[in-house]
Computed example of a mutant assay.
Amino acid sequence: MFFYQFTLNHSKPDLIWNHKTREELRESLEKEIAFLKNERELHSVQLLSWNFDEFEVHYVSLDEELKIGNYYLRLLLSQGSSTDIDNESLYIKSPIEFFNALYHRFLSNSNVHMKADCLQAMSIIYEKYDEEIGAFSDVNFLLNILNGCRNRTLRDRIVQFIGKIIKQQTNIRTLLRSDGLLILIDLATLSHLHVNRAVIPTQTNVIEASPEMARDSMEKEWHVSKDEAISFADLKDLWKDGKISAETKCWAQGYNSWRKISEIAQLKWTLMAEGLSIFQENNMTIYILDTLIRICERYPSRTVPDNAIIRPIPKVKQILSDESCLPHIVHLLLTFDPVIVERVATLIYLIIEDNPRISLLYLTGMFYFILMYTGSNILPISR
């Protein structure tokens, strides 16, 4: 059986075996045998013993493969993204050690792409081995990285990892204490910037405006000084010309005070960001909404089986029903994306169930926005 497997090619997270590696093993063994024969001829009288403890084979063909612990990262990411990770085909012998090795590499490496790959691998491992690994102790630290980073790839991988670690309730509590929900909701609002969404066809005889006319008609909602308001397009021009920086303070209606550009998600991820996104804006919003829904489902508003109303209401619903969060969630209805609208409706239903703050919902414009929606997925919304 061993010889049969030896002759086959293998490409697994913990094993790469092919024609090149077999040749490299053969060459190393032949070289070692030739050396021992030569030594035996030189010391024909003395008994010789092979130093097998220190015999190693250097597989040159694997030099380009990144290996963390006993696993090749490229193959792990490939297998984790193309197969169901609950399948036994992905088996990690020591998941805790490997997870810690990945996290150590994430912390010690300054390359953003390496950090993103480590986070992706950590997500794959944690989703399958969360019970063995237990609570992730650095949730707060990771949120600080997310809040301060400007790389889209790293941002998306952190969001993806957060969506996996909520399988452990301890991680959810840390997420709530560290204002993690506020950060996620701030990122969810980026779906308003998504420009590749399908346009709802409507009959009209209005002549389409030229790009110049459309630019002039943009709402002037941003202030970089107290003199006059400017449009978002004007703001981008100022950034491009170097007239404003990340430290420049801006204000728009809805903000309690002037804020730096680096502190405003819409401006930060359009003006300052670099790198390629893993998610499109609307897909990231869907992922974040799914994460919030799963957290809310972990903390129901009523007990089972006696159906008693829980008081005080779960902390996650206190946070999401606060005026700093609820309007942003409701305004996602204005994307008119059917998937997002359905997720928002589900999330709001979970938030306001037996919630004494339900009156705040009437101040968000939710019912007006829903009446504007022309999609066909009415049932989850009408719920």
Rank of each mutant, 00 (worst) to 15 (best):
E323W: 07
I370R: 01
Y287H: 15
Y349W: 09
L29H: 01
K249R: 15
G134F: 06
Y59N: 08
T202H: 13
L363A: 13
V45Y: 15
T21W: 02
S61K: 05
E132Y: 02
N100R: 10
P305M: 00
A273N: 05
Y349G: 13
S123E: 05
C149Y: 01
S321A: 11
Y129V: 08
L371E: 15
S191N: 06
N307G: 00
I309G: 07
D179W: 11
K93M: 07
T303P: 03
L190S: 15
V224C: 04
K240T: 13
V339L: 08
I348C: 09
Y71A: 01
R383T: 13
T303W: 03
K315Y: 12
I185R: 00
Y129S: 01
K31A: 11
D354R: 07
I230R: 04
L29P: 02
L15N: 01
A116V: 10
G180P: 02
W17T: 00
P95E: 01
Y72S: 05
L76M: 09
R357E: 12
S321E: 02
C149E: 15
L119V: 10
K31Y: 07
H331D: 11
N38H: 09
R311F: 03
S245Q: 05
R302H: 00
D86R: 14
I145V: 15
R177F: 06
N144K: 13
R150A: 05
I33P: 03
K226C: 06
T303M: 05
T346C: 09
A214D: 06
P312N: 01
I172C: 05
S245R: 09
Y362T: 12
A121R: 04
S49D: 04
A265D: 08
E274R: 12
K115Y: 01
P211E: 14
P327G: 00
V159R: 06
L76G: 04
I185G: 02
Y4E: 12
I183L: 12
D322G: 05
M218N: 05
L146H: 00
D227R: 14
D237V: 13
V339P: 00
S376W: 10
F367P: 08
I92R: 02
Y373G: 03
T335H: 04
G275N: 07
L15Y: 06
I310A: 05
H19L: 11
R40M: 14
G69H: 01
A214C: 02
I286P: 00
S44I: 11
Y59F: 15
H43V: 07
I92N: 09
G365S: 03
A188Q: 15
L289V: 13
R155A: 05
K167W: 04
L332Q: 03
K128L: 09
P312K: 04
I310W: 06
M272V: 11
